[in-house]
Amino acid sequence: MMATAMGALLTACGKPAVSKFRRYDGPPVTRVQVFKKQRRLQLLSGNRMLKDYKMEMGFAPDGHKQIQNDGRTPEGAYRIDRRNANSRFHLSLGISYPNSDDIARAEAMGKRPGGDIFIHGTPTNYIGQDDWTWGCIAVSNDEIEEIYAMVKDGTPIFIYP
């Protein structure tokens, strides 16, 4: 009885919490593409564009990510290889950077390539600045909820200059 009364009281105090996990039952996303110069992230099914988003990226937007902490977003062909439902940035999808070429390039410079590159939402204190990440691709929290539902692990992602 006490639990029922508490539930009614909490419901009366405001709207019930909305889950950040959405369902998607449309065409499969077969490709993610990112155009850094245009600041666009696109989801495709075959040749058909399903969604197009404005995005932000690393604070040093020009060029391919070379080494850890360079602030650049990688360029090239990768895969979505993991997901984080408890991200500091709402939700996030991991990108398979670094690949063997990225590792070899960084090692030739005597450096580490870095890692933990994601497509993610925004932190709670986000103030809307441009190109603020350390190399990740950022969209709004509403958009990452949609992307998180639509894009499966293993989906190829192509990041263009």
Results as ranks from 00 to 15, higher is better:
G7Y: 10
L10A: 12
A12G: 12
K15L: 10
A17R: 11
F21S: 00
R22G: 00
R22Q: 14
R23V: 05
R23D: 14
Y24E: 02
Y24C: 01
G26K: 03
P27A: 12
Q33I: 08
V34T: 08
K36W: 07
K36A: 02
K37E: 13
R39D: 04
L43M: 04
L43K: 05
S45L: 01
N47Q: 14
R48L: 12
M55W: 01
M57P: 10
M57K: 11
M57V: 07
M57Q: 15
F59S: 08
A60S: 13
P61L: 03
G63H: 05
K65C: 08
I67R: 15
N69G: 00
D70P: 12
D70L: 07
D70N: 09
G71L: 07
T73R: 11
E75A: 02
G76D: 05
A77N: 14
R79Q: 15
A85M: 03
L91Q: 13
S92R: 05
S92L: 10
G94E: 09
Y97F: 15
P98G: 11
N99H: 07
D101V: 07
R105D: 09
R105Q: 10
R105V: 02
A106F: 12
G110M: 06
K111P: 02
K111M: 14
G114N: 08
Y126T: 03
D130A: 06
I137V: 10
E143W: 00
E145T: 01
E145R: 04
Y148K: 02
K152M: 08
D153C: 04
I157W: 05
I157E: 04
F158A: 05
Y160H: 14
P161L: 00
P161F: 00
